[in-house]
Design a protein around this nucleic acid. Structure first.
Lengths: 253, 253
DNA sequence: CGGATTCTTGAGCATATTCAATTGTGGTGG
DNA sequence: CCACCACAATTGAATATGCTCAAGAATCCG
């Protein structure tokens, strides 16, 4: 099958968990194909990215180059729900966000975002198998991630939810800590953002984090930084640890 | 399909909410393009559809022809979470379901399901713009639906969740009731399935339904049939009503 | 350094869960 | 046709978990 007859059939990542390492590489490789068509948006914390394109309201596609963003919806009378957290390599189409639901795309970070017209992206996908497979891998990953997220807020208690969230961040953005066995990462989101992501009250979240600290799983540390003292112990607290490791575990573990 | 210079640019549904009416038409139109490659699965209630393809474990794509299916995940130590309910025209790729999470695809109904190798589907998408746009519309719709679902289980109280669920079913599968103003539809899911979808206890769900009945929004009726007496009143109970109507409201309203 | 914001923590409360008993429904066989 | 069984759905009382509200501590930024 690697005979080269059909480039798509040589794309292996579908068969196994995508390698996070290769994700940035692929993104860089796409630069050549996409750059003539993308508008680069420099993001900064709190800014609100408009989801639809200006002219004629066509659908837009966004590709996260660097940084972290949150996708939120707010239904009347309820508080905001963060529906997804986007990391580099993730894709968002404006059609993913329901209308009439006050959807927002908000950078948590300084970073870079590519925007292009959806129709252009679709055309490129049809022509270039690399673009298509990048997109489909991204969709696969994000769908799987959302499934885990739904299971977490639907079934987990607050400690399990927080552990799941921290584990996801550790796996996706963490680096092994100098004092072995641990993992360190920046917390790109505010307490309220995290609470909105987990379907928890900010107070409850704070309490839960405090308990994790006093039970020795986390370390006290600076404002926007998390030190996981024992990643294995954190994983034991999350029913989704095996699933998360299958999705993202190729970086740290 | 349409004659225009670039077929993709003639695909309008991206700009507005997709018409449910046209969904079945499009599905029928795809039959010609897909039928040489699909395996048709006749589904019956409770059966468990295996998510991966038999030979060499390649990724599979499923297209719902008729009937209703649930996609569920179960994390160790917690009860099942129904992550999505699939209706005709919906698409599921095996990569959407996280590994190590005990994912299941379960028909709630008798119906028909198409299965094909993902790589084949991707090739067809690259060649045939109608296939590609069908897929992307489906992804848009399902992503938006999942966002609403996440917001519901993350932020809504139990009555709001139930109202949201009933409204979704009414909009997607309901028919105007003989006695005007109402909507009737079959309930394809068991109480437990619904509870697992909404992140609620089955007992709580039952209580909530009872209260909706005694408050006059619903009618007492047979086992697997729901009669919404006043759709507007039901909508008033769901913070997501506007979003749901924007997504699916073109059938009943 | 001061003011604003974010985060933490406690006490009381509300909502949904648990567990168990009861009723209802559908299917099977006498 | 009815009796019976297994299973699904309903309902109540007690409990637990997370929420609300308010006060205080920590951190950021000018």
């Amino acid at each position: 099958m690697t005979s080269g007859a059909n480039p798509r059939s040589t794309v292996k990542p579908f068969a196994g968990p995508p390698l996070a390492q290769s994700k940035t590489d692929r993104l860089a490789a796409l630069h050549a194909a996409l750059s003539p068509h993308v508008a680069t948006i420099r993001t900064r914390r709190g800014q609100n990215v408009t989801l639809t394109l200006m002219a004629e309201g066509g659908e837009a596609a966004f590709i996260v180059r660097t940084g972290v963003l949150t996708v939120g919806v707010t239904m009347p009378g309820t508080s905001r729900q963060v529906v997804a957290i986007l990391f580099p390599g993730d894709v968002l189409c404006s059609g993913f966000v329901p209308r009439e639901a006050d959807g927002t795309l908000t950078p948590a970070n300084a970073g870079e975002l590519w925007r292009l017209r959806w129709s252009v992206f679709a055309e490129l996908s049809a022509k270039d198998a690399a673009v298509a497979s990048f997109y489909h891998e991204a969709i696969d990953r994000q769908m799987a991630c959302r499934a885990i997220h739904v299971a977490a807020i639907g079934q987990f208690d607050c400690r399990q939810r927080v552990a799941t969230f921290l584990l996801e961040l550790a796996l996706r953005t963490g680096t092994p800590s100098p004092s072995g066995g641990g993992v360190v990462f920046d917390m790109p989101l505010s307490r309220i953002d995290v609470a909105d992501y987990l379907g928890l009250n900010a107070d409850t979240l704070s309490r839960t984090m405090s308990r994790l600290r006093s039970s020795g799983v986390l370390n006290h540390s600076e404002r926007n930084r998390v030190v996981v003292r024992d990643l294995r112990a954190l994983g034991a607290l999350s029913p989704a640890s095996r699933a998360l490791i299958a999705l993202y575990g190729d970086r740290v573990l």
